[in-house]
């Protein structure tokens, strides 16, 4: 086989294992014809999970994921991703552009969609360790050892505030939906108890959601993919608020509001007199 064969076999064509539009025949999405099988029968979140994973989940699972999106999208422009929406709004950047780029901010090590990868990896590997005999206290102790005695575990504790009201709301909704509790969530609760007793810290929305998504059977990458638009709602609200106010009036700065810490004014040297 020539080195070029692989590339030539892909040239001039497109392959998809997801679906597509066959003009006059239908619009296919995995095992479904979208207009006949999905529209009016499945929720937007069921179809979004289908797009992300190729699997059709139960309606009540999709409803719970939708609630997670509500929890992770608040109209507060002080939140970093939301402020990008506000700054776009005040500069009259379009709502689509501002919301899209604000959503990109969630590819972060500190918050947002990308942290779900680490959160899901943690609870899934922790469960494997539990099955090998480790207790929740031993898992926490090992994590603390990695971080000079601080239990820096993605999904537990949170910046700016202690406690997490979103977990309370999602737990209530999960009960209403009669979602069954799996072994990841059970371990997450055990870790939460250890952290509360030993460190005065607790599970946050990432830890709680990653445990449930893992119980739903999603991999860390699938959890991340499903959450692509997780924070978009709050950014949209913040853009709209700034858009409806005078241009550039969102949180304006005087020159003197910048704490300049660089060199004092100096003459520019000519070439080779640097």
């Amino acid at each position: 086989m020539s080195k070029l064969d692989f590339w030539d076999q892909h040239r001039g064509i497109i392959k998809s294992s997801k679906g597509g539009w066959k003009i006059g025949r239908g619009i296919f999405n995995h095992d479904y014809e979208m207009m006949a099988d999905l529209v009016g029968y499945k929720s937007y979140f069921q179809v979004m999970v289908l797009n992300a994973t190729g699997r059709m989940i139960e309606k009540k699972q999709a409803d719970w994921i939708e609630a997670v999106f509500i929890c992770l999208s608040w109209p507060d422009p002080r939140i970093w991703c939301n402020q990008i929406g506000s700054l776009g709004g005040t500069l009259r950047s379009s709502v689509v552009a501002s919301t899209s780029v604000g959503n990109m901010a969630g590819d972060s090590r500190l918050y947002g969609q990308k942290t779900l990868i680490a959160g899901a990896e943690f609870i899934q590997s922790a469960l494997q360790e539990k099955k090998k005999g480790l207790t929740a206290a031993e898992i926490v102790a090992r994590e603390a050892q990695k971080h000079r005695g601080k239990p820096n575990i993605v999904g537990y504790a949170r910046p700016i505030a202690k406690g997490d009201e979103r977990v309370v709301a999602l737990e209530r909704y999960a009960k209403e939906l009669k979602l069954s509790e799996g072994e990841h969530l059970l371990l997450a609760r055990e870790i939460d108890n250890v952290l509360l007793q030993q460190y005065d810290e607790s599970i946050n929305v990432n830890g709680y959601c990653c445990a449930i998504m893992s119980d739903f059977g999603f991999s860390p990458q699938e959890t991340y993919r499903i959450s692509t638009l997780l924070i978009a709602g709050g950014i949209l609200a913040c853009h709209t608020d700034a858009w409806q106010r005078p241009a550039e009036s969102f949180y304006p700065l005087r020159c003197t509001d910048i704490d300049y810490q660089g060199p004092a004014p100096r003459p520019v040297p000519g070439k080779e007199n640097n």
């Binding site: 910046p159 700016i160 810290e201 020159c255």
Partner: peptide, 29 residues
């Protein structure tokens, strides 16, 4: 569940820059 309360983190009061200085106009900063 732990009650939600602020950590009262010490955020900077001002944005800073080592790169750029803008000399303000005396009448309109």
């Amino acid at each position: 569940m732990q009650k939600t309360e602020s950590r009262n983190e010490n955020f900077s009061s001002r944005q800073s820059s080592k790169i750029w200085f803008e000399q303000p106009d005396s009448a309109n900063p």
